[in-house]
Write a protein that binds this DNA or RNA. Structure first.
Length: 302
DNA sequence: AATGAAAACAACCGCGAGTTA
DNA sequence: GTAACTCGCGGTTGTTTTCAT
């Protein structure tokens, strides 16, 4: 049995809205509200439109405080940032940008921002080839420097091509070693992944994450959320086994195949509204992926 | 000025999830 | 328990506008 149509398509007007229709819809909603029933609304409002069409028109265009026009740099940054961590969840991204609609952001991403980023990545690549990438802080004798310099750009391009994990603007992977002889790399400044690998199976780190057995930081491979950076931490002695290409493509593939929240994630766990802020989202993500044994175990990598 | 291509924007479609009877 | 209904979302398509030749 097929789905019942939401309206009689032969008796509804389609295509662009006229100013008169806009006025009718706006006036009706401002006077009576939506009544929680978009399907019945057009009839009551005297519009020959499908309820879904009315809803879309209201949400994307007529609703008060809708912002149209150019996106600011800050908005760009938020979009890229969230896209990198949650993918094309436009409604969630829109909730962080007051006045912007998911449709607006989606269109902006598809038509401008993606290209803008591609352009940045390309020019950034050229600059780094000339300057030997001042952000890359490798031990002086490390042979890894050349390895990572040659691979990182390709990895980012892969991610862009895969259209799922997007690098944050102005952020090249930033490699450095800390006092504990761990190598970090960071993508972005807002979101929020920290991977710590402390065993020998680093050739394909993403596939090993769910085998977490403790959170003592020594024997556990763990994934956690909540920091302000996308960070990968790898013991120095292990870095020679790890290729960024491998990491990035695996990560992108997992996201593409299973989604950010994994197969077990229920959308009902993740209620949000216009007041939901990033911290709440992070908290929800965190709680949805926690297995309660002290290790945030993301099931779909098992 | 004319025209074709590309970009931008608005709207539609189909699906999944939640709700209700 | 389940079928029907509604909502909201993301992907896609269609139309309009802008740009290049």
């Amino acid at each position: 049995m097929g789905r019942a149509p939401c309206c009689d398509k032969n008796n509804v007007k389609r295509g662009p809205w006229s100013p008169e229709e806009d006025a009718k819809l706006k006036e009706f909603i401002e006077k009576y509200g939506t009544g929680g029933n978009w399907i019945a609304l057009p009839l009551k409002a005297g519009l020959k439109r499908c309820g879904k069409s009315c809803r879309l028109r209201w949400l994307n265009y007529l609703r008060p405080n809708i912002k149209h026009g150019d996106f600011s740099d800050e908005e760009d940054r938020v979009i890229c940032s969230l896209y990198a961590s949650i993918g094309s969840r436009w409604s969630i991204i829109a909730a962080q940008l007051p006045g912007r609609t998911d449709n607006d952001i989606k269109n902006y991403w598809n038509t401008k921002l993606k290209k803008k980023l591609m352009g940045f990545i390309q020019s950034s690549s050229n600059i780094n080839q000339r300057t030997k990438s001042p952000n890359l802080l490798f031990p002086p004798t490390s042979t890894l420097q050349t390895t990572f310099q040659s691979q990182s750009q390709a990895s980012i391009s892969n991610l862009l091509r895969d259209s799922y994990v997007e690098p944050i603007p102005l952020v090249q992977p930033n490699f450095m070693y800390n006092n504990n002889n761990m190598m970090n790399f960071q993508l972005g400044t807002n979101n929020q992944h920290s991977y710590n690998f402390h065993d020998q199976s680093l050739m394909n780190p993403m596939q090993t994450i769910s085998s977490c057995s403790s959170s003592d930081g020594l024997s556990c491979k763990q994934i956690s959320y909540g920091n302000e950076e996308m960070m990968c931490q790898i013991p120095f002695e292990e870095t020679q086994k790890f290729t960024l290409d491998n990491y990035c493509t695996t990560w992108a593939d997992h996201q593409k195949t299973n989604g950010y929240f994994g197969n077990n994630f229920q959308s009902s766990q993740f209620q949000y509204d216009d007041h939901t802020n990033i911290e709440e989202i992070k908290e929800l993500i965190s709680s949805s992926s926690s297995n309660g044994n002290g290790c945030n175990n993301v099931g779909y990598w098992g």
